[in-house]
Design a protein around this nucleic acid. Structure first.
Lengths: 159, 159
DNA sequence: TTCTTTATTTAGAATGATTATAATTTAATA
DNA sequence: TATTAAATTATAATCATTCTAAATAAAGAA
């Protein structure tokens, strides 16, 4: 487990290495991402959290930073069909190696921290000559707890 | 293979059965969808095609019709992360049984007309108590033809 | 067929997410 | 420290989508 400071340092190095500058706004944004590793935050969510510590930051800057971090493959940009892009840090090693379960009842997004697709990716390569660099696998359905009214675990944020 | 007229009739019946009305605008929209079964059209695309034959139709109507057809499970609403929702008819029987290959070079979306996920869906059920009703599987990568400069097959619409 | 009710359509305004712009500020480096 | 290019800010613009109010049309009743 690498400390927040070390991860931050590594991210900054990646930026500098590619010719981008390290700024306080970018650092503040990265800090928020590090503290919410698997929260699937929207740009607006990130913006509000960064603003708590750095109130003068602009929304556009957060958008630009998230875009940059996405280009650098430091964050992963996702969208679950609700019209908002969501962002998460890619933990080292597991670039895109996880899937999502999206609950139709409460909207909760839970992760499957695993990569179940290596075999299928080979099949795509074999059968279609398509060279896979990334994938997205989302399951839509319901948690049994939600279906049985006992939604506490997954539905705390339901509207 | 069912004829366009028969499919149209069946869709109208489904509408009526659920208490919705059958209108010329809805029919025109469904016709366009039937003629572009696997084109992954955006609402705007559909609108422009419908407008050719029914110039007085409004964009909002097309949106509303697509939403209605999605609710009725007649069309499938997808999004590939480019900020536009895309729509296709669900062919009978194959509700959600296909996957996508999205080319990073030309942006072309090609389908895998198969369902490779039944086994994984069982696993999600078993390991997470999550009851899957639908899924989405997209592979991002490159077609070998595109990679070798010979992009004719997949890249005709590239920008 | 005509009437009545209610859903639907239209046109345009409104919204919400995201991106672009122009002026100002800041980081990196000479 | 001075220079230069990149980044930030604030705001306007854009794009996809949804809402609104008034007008119209479909389905069923009389």
């Amino acid at each position: 487990m690498i400390s927040v400071e070390e991860q931050l340092k590594s991210m900054k190095q990646q930026m500098i290495a590619k010719g981008y500058k390290s700024t306080v706004q970018r650092e503040a944004t990265m800090r928020v991402l590090l503290e919410h590793e698997r929260d699937h935050m929207s740009a607006e969510d990130v913006y509000m959290r960064v603003k708590e510590r750095f109130p003068e930051i602009g929304l556009a800057t957060v958008y630009r930073t998230l875009e940059l971090l996405t280009d650098l493959h430091i964050v992963e940009k996702m969208n679950f069909g609700d019209g908002v892009a969501r962002f998460d840090l890619r933990s080292e090693g597991h670039m895109h190696m996880h899937h999502h379960m999206i609950c139709s009842i409460c909207g909760e997004v839970e992760e499957i921290q695993d990569d179940w697709l290596t075999e299928l990716e080979q099949r795509v390569q074999r059968e279609y000559g398509f060279d896979v660099s990334d994938h997205r696998l989302d399951f839509i359905g319901t948690f049994s707890s939600c279906k049985h009214g006992d939604c506490r675990r997954h539905c705390e944020t339901a509207s």
